[in-house]
Design a protein around this nucleic acid. Structure first.
Lengths: 117, 117
DNA sequence: GTAACCAGTAACCATTAGTTAACCGATAAC
DNA sequence: GTTATCGGTTAACTAATGGTTACTGGTTAC
């Protein structure tokens, strides 16, 4: 995991950066999948296992989202020569850079739930 | 701005927290609007000014997103008795709690742009 | 032999998200 | 009197998201 470099940016550049981030990480599922993989890096994470634990996601969506994360080099896909064949998904080194994003969203969500209670 | 409290949570609770956050902050525009307001807290931020500076947003979307942010107590809407009438949008104290989220997304987006270059 | 598990894909449909353009009434500037 | 600005709304549309069901083909457990 690279150490984040503090940058100077104009408001315009900041808003463009948020747009860029959301293009890759936005939507209902990607950050949840990333968080799940982050929390289970020491295990094999098969398609079915991810689907069971990322609650509510359909096979179709999971398949699509994993493919997009793979294209953006955030996760790897490895076919395992087990019987029956399983497929292992894992975070890449680069995928780890998403951790602070999910972390702030977890914190905000937990805090918000407290607040509206 | 409340100081964030570190919490213990299971993976399941974390994923639910991300879902909650995205329900309120998700989509193409909300976090960009929040960031813009955060960067311009010392000014009056009228509808048209926000629309000019949050590049690409239509009046319809801005109107809808601001209404939803207002409902969730993240921004306030104040009609100003100027001629012509203007409307001022401002972050609430609670809205400030979103800052860490936009900050990590700005950092990630800037870093990502460097990386793919 | 039959049922279930694995990792998906394909087809179809419904809902949601977001865009574009026109328009509103009030006021002010030329 | 015409045009521009303010803060939006409305309608019509497309694109993206997401659900459901059925299906693949090989393997293993009953």
């Amino acid at each position: 995991m690279e150490t984040p470099i503090k940058r100077e940016a104009t408001c315009e550049q900041e808003l463009a950066a948020i747009r860029d981030s959301l293009e890759i990480l936005g939507g209902k599922w990607k950050l949840r999948i990333m968080r799940y993989l982050n929390n289970h890096m020491d295990e094999k994470n098969t398609f079915k296992k991810i689907q069971r634990e990322v609650e509510g996601i359909s096979a179709k969506m999971l398949s699509k989202e994993l493919r997009e994360l793979e294209i953006n080099l955030l996760v790897t896909r490895t076919v395992m020569e087990t019987r029956p064949i399983t497929v292992n998904y894992a975070m890449t080194e680069y995928g780890l850079s998403v951790f602070p994003v999910t972390e702030t969203l977890v914190d905000w969500g937990l805090n918000h739930r407290e607040k509206i209670k």
